[in-house]
Design a protein around this nucleic acid. Structure first.
Lengths: 338, 338
DNA sequence: CTGAAAGCGCTAACAA
DNA sequence: TTGTTAGCGCTTTCAG
């Protein structure tokens, strides 16, 4: 009643089980006629490989684990989509888990899956470096939008992008900007702030950081209020969700964008083009990040030789999408409008 | 060098492998002291279950497969999120695959995974009934937003929702509406059209269907153009993406919403509240649909007895979110404004 | 309460 | 070219 095994096929075909196995895996080491016979019997019986038996023997699961720090964030959709497509192309299986912005949950997920997958791609992992290195010792692992010396990674060029943002704002006459930071343990949040500060220093703008904020629309309330408490004429939010939340709150408080305050986001999610005013945001080829990370991972798992000859670090380009939420700096403090 | 097995633990602890196994699985059938000893040795060695060996024996994979018809559509992310949370609560693993709106791809995915998962949840499957029944014979299976006699399913109450939509439009004085249909093989597209037509008949409105359209923003162009070719004063688009595409196209063509034409969508995706005008749309507890489907599936896979005593069919409520894209019917034909 | 042994489905030597 | 055998890591009788 249960699924037929190679023994069923073997008996039915009048050969040994190993011959059946060979007929599938080393077809050229079986006489053509027997092979054809075996295959036809297998088809007739509806024989299917049992992947677990195979895994037990080979240790390879043909699955890869993808960990995203928050499945709710549309930004990750793109990464997931890219990864999924690439995984599929290799007949692998994508196991998706959501860390819910919690390092603890992320850690547990990975531990639990470590035996069940051939490797991991971590999207914007919130884990401390030590933990990531610990796991990297157990399984091949590729980072997305995070870098760690010695580990392969794929990131969007946020450093370059931050310079573009600051230049854009400077060209509009802004002299003081504020960065609404993402989560404390987010590598990108750290990196963006560094890049923004660096760019501002270079050009001669004043830069301030507020945060940390959980990057959701809801957090936009607190973030907007805090931003209004500064003398900045432009805010750079850690991502589009936060930026959209900020836009909402500003509207509520009667602050007009971009007349009183300019707003910039990150990720160029679908909604960024729909909100009003449409959001100026730094986009990137996120789906390609997902695909490339999987690609690197599969390379790693395939390789038999010494594991770390050269650790690839891909940096994919970013683009600034200038829309309606940024404009010339207002002369006075934006609060003066009240 | 490779992961320690129960034999390593057994040797180190000075007991038999079977005792180690029992210490984990039937703790009460092992003397407390030996058990504690074994567990401590196991911890020290960093022992981890090998799930594949277990699977080989038990046939249970502790993974469930989720198939979505288009991973690009934000609507499904709610379903995925709900399913993921529920799966996690049971220490199962979610295997996610994308059918890319292609029955063929969907079929292949499911076939390939059939051995690797304990069951499937299918989100808005585009497969013909026969195929679904074929798979249901191999593995437990729960449908989301699709119904099929004899199979468990969880749907949002679109039938009721369509009546609400039509009533809403009727109350605004609309007398002729057009439904921009989703994909041909989409059960919801079929069901929505039936419900809309039924509601219109009952209330005495004229209803027309155009389509089929792939439910994306890009399809909105053709859909909007087609809608303008009718005498309808309100359009109901198969989902929010299509509706948003329609809004865009209408803006492009100088048709104002809702003054000239009212627009309604389905799903209440995040962007529906951001586009302008904000979209009137039928929402539902989509994350709960995902969770409930997984719940039903786990019930099924746990059950040892006769498989089909009562086949559960859950219908979760829907709500109409009335926003700015619907308004009073315009007197004349909307094309008269040109 | 614990150990020995068989076997889940498959592959990979080793023989023939 | 094909068959025999052992074993991947684990659970589960069956003895002891």
């Amino acid at each position: 009643m249960s699924a037929p095994t190679i023994y069923d096929v073997a008996r039915e075909a009048g050969v040994a089980a190993s011959t059946v196995s060979r007929a599938f895996n080393n077809p050229n080491r079986v006489r053509v006629s027997t092979r054809d016979h075996i295959l036809s019997v297998a088809r007739r019986l509806g024989y299917q490989h049992n992947p677990h038996a195979r895994t037990l023997l080979s240790g390879r699961t043909h699955a890869i684990g993808m960990v995203v720090s928050d499945i709710t964030n549309p930004h990750y959709f793109e990464l997931i989509r890219g990864a999924e497509m690439r995984v599929k192309a290799s007949k692998y299986t994508l196991v998706l888990v959501n860390a819910e912005e919690s390092p603890r949950i992320e850690y547990d997920h990975i531990r639990r899956l470590a035996q069940s997958v051939d490797g991991f791609v971590l999207a914007a992992s919130r884990l401390p470096d030590e933990n990531i290195l610990e796991f990297a010792g157990m399984r091949p692992l590729v980072l997305m939008n995070r870098e760690l010396p010695g580990l392969p990674s794929v990131i969007v060029d946020y450093a370059e992008g931050c310079h573009r943002i600051v230049e854009h704002l400077a060209s509009l006459g802004h002299e003081s900007i504020v960065y609404l930071a993402g989560p404390r343990n987010s590598w990108t949040a750290q990196q963006r702030w560094n890049s923004i500060r660096h760019a501002c220093d270079k050009i001669g703008l004043k830069a301030e950081r507020i945060g940390y904020f959980i990057p959701t629309v809801a957090s936009g309330i607190a973030a907007a209020d805090a931003a209004l408490h500064t003398d900045a004429t432009a805010v750079i939010a850690h991502n589009d969700l936060l930026a959209i939340g900020v836009l909402r709150r500003l509207t509520e408080r009667g602050v007009s964008v971009p007349a009183d305050l300019s707003v910039v986001g990150f990720d160029n999610i679908f909604a960024a083009d729909l909100c009003s005013p449409a959001l100026t945001t730094l986009g990137g080829a996120h789906a390609e990040v997902g695909g490339a990370a999987v690609e690197l991972l599969l390379d790693r798992t395939r390789v038999i030789g010494p594991p770390s000859d050269a650790v690839p670090r891909l940096v994919l380009p970013s683009w600034l999408h200038v829309r309606a939420s940024t404009g010339p700096a207002s002369r006075g403090n934006h609060m003066a409008t009240h």
